[in-house]
Amino acid sequence: MRWYDEHDCPSCQLTACDYSGPEAMPAEGRTALLTAHGPARLRLPGPLGDPVAALRVLRAEPGVTLGLARQLLDELREFGLTGTAVEMAWRRARLAERGVAAEVEAGFGRAYRYVGPPELWEWAVDLGSPGGQPVRTEGEFADWAAARTAAELAEPFTFTVDLGGALRLAPRRSEHVACAGGELVLSAGEIGFRRSDGGGGGDRDGGGGGRAGGGWEVGTVGNLSTGYCPDVASWPAVAAALDRLALPHPGSFTDPVVFRRCPGCGRCGIVREGHHVCVFCDADLPERWNVDDVPLP
């Protein structure tokens, strides 16, 4: 697998092309692709018949140790692996050569990178790991809820959805960038849980009765995150994370926030009551989300 990076010099008008062999793509290029196009998911259509073959494929990738290969194998078997579309297509082809069938699925649109104060991002990265607790299964959510006090559960929580589609939860006043460990997210905001009435609640497609979500459901959920400023179009990623936990939910953001960056003064603000005018300089704001546009050819 190789990568190329073409760029034009605005001064001399010359075009240059950087090229690499098998080493990993530079982080800034990979981030740009994920931000503009979102991640793709590599998943198994059924049980993994030959885990040793899959492990050998993962272990053969540059920079992958045996321990990391085993971790990737567990991810593949349980939830699938995520990355750029090219990376996942390359892994699918290598697995097929070893007789392991896998499928590549599109993700949930763009990913969002942190756009807040740089010092907060540096602080979050220095922590070494995401501050938010990942909950990927019904059992993990049940354990997480059981460890919270009644006072904690009475308030909304900070949440992010990572590139793997997992919900990460932290106390309400936590920084979203800390919850995500400075990484890209599929969405971010605040979420509140409440005890369900036992009837399933919510408007989740295919929602059933009984004790879905272990007796919990989503009461409120919004995309208020001034660190990531996600678009309201990020809801499908949130819904998928909640469906994985069998948590009934309202079917959309109950507290949607419309973020826009002013093309005049460059500041980011919130559009209120559909009034697309910058509160800082009175310039007109665009209709589409533009907080962190990444130009790609």
Rank of each mutant, 00 (worst) to 15 (best):
L95Q: 10
A154L: 02
R272Q: 12
R260Q: 12
R41N: 05
S252Y: 13
P117R: 15
D282H: 15
E75R: 14
G164N: 07
E78P: 00
A147N: 04
G192F: 03
A147S: 08
D143E: 13
R195V: 05
P62Q: 11
D255C: 07
G198E: 15
G200S: 11
R30K: 13
G83Y: 04
V271W: 07
E28P: 02
G266W: 15
P62D: 13
A246F: 06
F193Q: 02
G38N: 04
R204Y: 02
A150S: 06
V218D: 13
A240P: 03
G206T: 04
E6M: 05
L73M: 11
P297T: 06
R70G: 12
M88E: 04
V177R: 01
L81R: 08
D50W: 01
L73W: 13
G264T: 10
T84P: 00
G67F: 06
P130N: 06
D197N: 12
L120R: 15
V271C: 07
R168N: 04
H276M: 14
A16T: 14
A60K: 12
P26T: 13
L167A: 06
P156N: 04
W90Q: 14
Q13F: 12
A283S: 11
G38T: 02
M25W: 01
C281W: 15
A240H: 10
A40Q: 05
D255F: 09
L169K: 06
L66M: 11
G206S: 05
F259V: 02
G128S: 05
E103G: 01
G219C: 04
D197C: 09
D18L: 14
G227I: 01
G214D: 15
R288G: 00
A170S: 11
S129T: 06
G80V: 00
L14S: 11
V135Q: 09
A178I: 04
P51A: 03
P26Q: 12
L81T: 00
G227A: 02
N223D: 13
W90L: 10
G128P: 04
L153I: 00
T220M: 13
G198K: 15
P286I: 02
D243V: 03
T82F: 08
A106K: 14
P47N: 01
R204M: 08
E78C: 00
L296K: 03
A241Q: 10
L66R: 14
T220I: 11
R113K: 13
F193A: 00
E175C: 01
P236A: 03
C9S: 08
A53D: 09
D8S: 04
S187V: 00
A69N: 10
W144Y: 10
R110F: 03
R244K: 11
R70E: 15
R77I: 00
